[in-house]
Design a protein around this nucleic acid. Structure first.
Lengths: 206, 206
DNA sequence: CCGCATCCGGGGCGATACTG
DNA sequence: CAGTATCGCCCCGGATGCGG
């Protein structure tokens, strides 16, 4: 059900937001449209994806993950955690990175344990695709776009943003490479959250 | 590196034991030999697998996971946990199940949290491929073969064994479907361990 | 036997074009 | 926007061969 090409990537796209057909097409550079159609059909038949017909307020068909499809997220997160060292340290010349993928890696890295008392909202300023990351004690959610009321703003290279939010860079290193703005206490809270995750996931290989 | 066909399955095979070329071929029904050779080459070049030349005591080339390759196990475990409901409840007519795959699912299900004070050794009697599962406070390891000093013997249908050790069946249900033998206290300990994992992973959907 | 390399259909895949 | 249709190609699967 999920072993063939593109299927898990479609799930990844749908994990961040419900998508129209063209959203998926844009989010999966290189996919052929016949393959996208067939993969959606398969995933729908297998009960991982729902097709949502447009009602009065809506304009277009929307695909969304079912509960069963969402159960794949821990597996995707584990894969992303495994891959993030390579994404950060050795991006090939023609590798691309998108803000939404940074968001997904951040969800993977921050998801599991508790994350602090008060909610924290990050604005990750990617040139092409800014994302907002909300960290609450219960969960971490990312969404595309910009907000006015972020606690911390992170701008700079997409790769360094990924390094920070995936735990590959120490906060100290990342703050030299990125521009991290916010009140002293909010930045400290972010640092604390990230360092908690780092010690619990990485085996301190440096 | 791991998205194409067979690669992750090769990692799965190597996670249980070091394998010769033909071991892998046997463990991956349906793989073509040219593909196996090419996948091994890729995985080796990418640093996930090591080729071990036969020394004096050895007879044959052996492949084994590198540390980096072993870091994929959490991802594989997450996939297995996601898949096990389908493996247990709806095995298709031509689905196969092997003892070693039961062992892998058991590792996935039991791996994470602490597992009790004293080590517990299970003998899973599969007709074709019996496995021994050692549960210690620190880790769960499975190996192929039989042992004399198991604490608990589990015999019966391979599917039911998988259901028990992957948490899909309650211990009560499984003990009706399987033959579970051991001292009263050892069986209770097994039951306790399995029920701990069940409550922490499943959302009690029954 | 073991560890591959080679050869050979067939089908999935990738790119483009097309349509309601 | 949401797909369908078509086409060439390469990758995959299955069989066989072959030196160590």
């Amino acid at each position: 059900m999920i072993g063939d090409r593109w299927s898990l990537l479609i799930v990844r796209e749908l994990s961040l937001r419900d998508c129209r057909y063209t959203d998926l097409r844009d989010g999966l550079p290189g996919i052929a449209s016949n393959l996208l159609a067939e993969r959606i059909r398969r995933l729908t038949n297998d009960g991982l994806v729902e097709r949502h017909e447009p009602d009065a307020a809506e304009v277009s068909v929307v695909y969304r993950l079912t509960a069963r499809g969402r159960e794949l997220l821990p597996a995707l997160h584990a894969i992303v955690l495994w891959a993030s060292p390579m994404m950060v340290s050795g991006p090939a010349p023609d590798d691309r990175q998108r803000g939404r993928w940074t968001a997904f890696a951040a969800e993977a890295f921050l998801d599991r344990p508790a994350a602090g008392r008060e909610p924290l909202r990050l604005q990750v300023d990617d040139e092409h695709e800014p994302v907002v990351i909300d960290i609450t004690p219960d969960e971490v959610t990312a969404s595309l776009g910009s907000t006015d009321d972020a606690d911390v703003h992170i701008s700079g290279s997409t790769w360094h943003q990924l390094g920070l939010l995936s735990g590959e860079l120490t906060f100290a290193d990342a703050s030299r490479l990125l521009d991290i703005r916010g009140t002293r206490s909010d930045v400290q809270r972010l640092r604390h959250i990230l360092e908690m995750r780092r010690t619990s996931t990485t085996s301190d290989h440096e």
